[in-house]
């Protein structure tokens, strides 16, 4: 590591210390979940998970596994803190977002423990920036209790097929309706806007369809404003897995390949829109 302003000597005790020779691997994933200002970070031996939530209805997780880092050590079983994601991203991209080919920002990240700031040492072209970001009390996170055994329908699509659909979503519609079915229309996205309704159908034998495991017909509605931020992750991803459980909870898993060919995942969970007629009954 070409870090000249010596970061802490290795003898010092840090709850979390990690180094990464290209900070963009981290910043691009964080940007994929950056729809709220604050994020909760959880570091365990397997890696770093950054969680962002909104309206108690949507949760986004970016997983950066330990292997992505050149060095990753966690002294305790798990280390958790809340941090301003906007500030963290600003610091990570302090040398600019568009790096020239061949140049990259190296990162060393240290966290002494509860109450201490997160320290970032960023180096590019011999210039070192040291950032200290205050950490906050971690939030209690939503537990969607979404486990793979309870999944009713699952579809894996090439992201290319969804990108255009999400870019063209009729934002005058309050909801996005997702239909998954073993029979026609198989997989349908619908909006109901001012101008009328629009349906987008993907046949199960489409070349975009990597996997199709639907056991029963399900139609659920999700707030379009909640799902729209997931477009950021969709833009980066190569494949997306769309799953629903019996209650209609939605899981969108995006597989993201970075410049070095390593694979990371970003996951969005979303609550279904409550069906008013059912609630009234």
């Amino acid at each position: 590591m070409p870090l000249s302003a010596q970061p802490p000597a290795s003898g010092e005790r840090y709850a979390l210390s990690a180094s990464l020779d290209n900070a963009r691997h981290l910043s691009s994933l964080l940007r994929a979940v950056h729809f709220q200002d604050h994020a909760t970070c959880l570091a365990t031996a397997s890696g770093l998970r950054v969680t962002v939530e909104d309206a108690k209805c949507i949760q986004a997780n970016a997983f950066i596994q330990a292997e992505i880092f050149q060095e990753f050590s966690v002294q305790e079983e798990s280390v958790m803190f809340r941090i301003s994601l906007s500030v963290l991203l600003d610091c990570l991209t302090i040398f600019g977002t568009s790096s020239l080919p061949g140049t990259s920002t190296a990162l060393r990240m240290c966290y002494r423990g509860y109450g201490y700031p997160l320290m970032l040492f960023l180096e590019e072209g011999g210039v070192v920036t040291v950032c200290k970001i205050n950490t906050q009390e971690p939030d209690e996170l939503l537990d969607f209790d979404f486990c793979s055994t309870k999944v009713v329908n699952k579809i894996i699509l090439q992201s290319e097929g969804l990108r255009e659909a999400f870019a063209e979503l009729d934002m005058t519609s309050e909801v996005l309706q997702i239909t998954m079915s073993p029979d026609k229309p198989y997989f349908r996205l619908s909006t109901f806007g001012n101008a009328g309704s629009a349906h987008l159908d993907y046949p199960r034998d489409s070349d975009l369809m990597e996997a199709f495991h639907c056991s029963q017909t399900q139609t659920n509605r999700y707030k379009i404003s909640l799902l729209k931020p997931s477009t950021k992750a969709l833009a980066l991803s190569c494949k997306v897995s769309i799953r629903t459980d019996a209650q209609g909870f939605l899981s969108l898993q995006y597989m993201i390949r970075n410049e070095d060919g390593q694979i990371c995942f970003v996951e969005y969970y979303c609550c279904p829109d409550e069906n008013i007629t059912e609630a009234e009954l």
């Binding site: 009328g196 629009a198 159908d201 489409s206 070349d207």
Partner: peptide, 11 residues
């Protein structure tokens, strides 16, 4: 392409 169908019902 890929068999995708877009249906718009306009008022």
């Amino acid at each position: 392409k890929y068999g995708v169908t877009k249906t718009h019902n306009l008022a």
